[in-house]
Design a protein around this nucleic acid. Sequence first.
DNA 1: TTGTACGCGTTATCAC
DNA 2: GTGATAACGCGTACAA
Lengths: 331, 331
Amino acid sequence: MADVAREVGVTAKTVSRVLNDEEPVAVETRARVMAAVRKLGYQPNLMARNMRVGARDAAIGLVIPEMGNPFFGTVAGGVESAVRARGLTLIVGSSDETAELEQSLIATFLARRVSGLIVVPAAAGHHRHLRSERMAGLPIVFLDRPAVGLTADCVVSANREGSRAGVAHLLSHGHRRIGFVGDVPATLYTRRERFQGYRDALGGSGLPFDRSLVESGHDVEATALATMRLLALADPPTALFAGNNFASMGAVVALARAGRKDVALVGFDDLPLAEALDPPLTVVAQDPAGVGAAAAELVLARLDGDRSKARRATVPTRLIVRGSGELPPRR
Amino acid sequence: MADVAREVGVTAKTVSRVLNDEEPVAVETRARVMAAVRKLGYQPNLMARNMRVGARDAAIGLVIPEMGNPFFGTVAGGVESAVRARGLTLIVGSSDETAELEQSLIATFLARRVSGLIVVPAAAGHHRHLRSERMAGLPIVFLDRPAVGLTADCVVSANREGSRAGVAHLLSHGHRRIGFVGDVPATLYTRRERFQGYRDALGGSGLPFDRSLVESGHDVEATALATMRLLALADPPTALFAGNNFASMGAVVALARAGRKDVALVGFDDLPLAEALDPPLTVVAQDPAGVGAAAAELVLARLDGDRSKARRATVPTRLIVRGSGELPPRR
DNA sequence: TTGTACGCGTTATCAC
DNA sequence: GTGATAACGCGTACAA
């Protein structure tokens, strides 16, 4: 900046004025400064600017469990678009679903003085340590799962309602024994909510809850085995509801291996290849980009001075009918 | 920092020494400073530190086409792990495959004075504008596709060799008419390389190249239609090679819709549900996390002073045999 | 073992 | 319209 100023024969402050479109600067001076900027290839230093201006970095920190997971990847994409539209930059880190990494990432982001924080809480962990930051006015939004030990903004999918709708769909096709293939641990927020939706639907139809119809696993192979166990029951289910995308894949794999095309299946969360399966997979689709965008908007609103009390936003799900969920009960 | 110093009755410099584990500081002074730090909840400001120390942000900027794409998401995960292990932070942006967004993101990252840059070039675009940065010593690594108009480090998958191996696999199962379902535009680096691998394999078996066996599309629906066109030929292929994951999905969808289980298929790039398909999908798998990690390591090596000339790293692919690629030619 | 003086690149304040 | 000066939060160099 000093170089540019010297080149033009003005002070750094004048260059600063030109670069920030501030008044007043003489038209001619402005032109000469711009010319010098181009000639010298000068680029303003955002770090120094952030430090001087706001004492806050013009960036939003995002912590997700895993970047390779298309759900969280798409969430991150939604966050990024919204954040960039506002001229902010996105800083990300993945917690690998561990509380330690999550804490360390959050600490780093805080040390960088990010303008806002969006966190997908790791399975085990709490967020009491963020109380002081929150009270100091830092926008913090939790995503996909609520915070533990902290009252804060939160954006989640309509897990319970979506799950209820998916199971109700199976019920409306005549199924009375519907298995639930869930993820682990069963204490996970999303797992609990979706399981509640399953029970809501059963209750709504006056059906009893049969604990033997519930099995779990935490990856494709484990949920495939869980599915096999359900199919091997003395009084097996005629339909399955899978509580997340891994469970859906596990169920699909198990049904394919067993050569069973007579078991109805609805999965929570859409899959890229759902349409190519045989039969095509009926799902309760989430809106990951929408969830990400909603979280970002909430942060931005707080940044704009919204001081209302913490709120929970729920992003609707959508039942996509493709075939697997409309199979009739096996006679 | 001044507050902490005042609390203890020392100067800011002493606090700085304690926080950076510098010698010499009296053991007792150190303890008192730490106590004051905790009491006041003081957190060092990384922005100010970065600015003072290196004039560089302790961050790496990553530009990818799309975060929701599992391939690029996993790549980003690989980059992030490697970068974090070094105490650096990851800043990301998605270009949506447009040159404009790519340039604007790069400009933002440069303005932030990132310590290194990793870029997946958008389909149309060039990188001449990065010449000065590169000459100034900024580590820049291109990922998945090489830079255009700039000699720079680059990490790519073994596209040509992997594709050759995939097609050779079909040839070894007796196929003589093998269709190629590619993405568009055909000028894309990965598309060109994989197509060359296809031709290499044909040539290696002394088979002529038949232009009518090549069709393309840029999403699942379009590649499904492309596949249908191949199947409708007077002398149709008995096997298909899909040039990327969308093309694989399109081919799978088309074969499912046509009820054709007699056409062999090998896809480039693995799919989460590949195993659940009927028949399970044989693929040439890439190593996205490996590609990301390799790019990060290259940036870090440059950061450590490696001034050797620009090099291209090639990450091997792996043929995963699952069933669809081992179907015999239809008689 | 600790403190002083200064500088990183930028902008706010107020005088000219 | 423009400039001089100070300040953001921290680290370097050197003196005490």
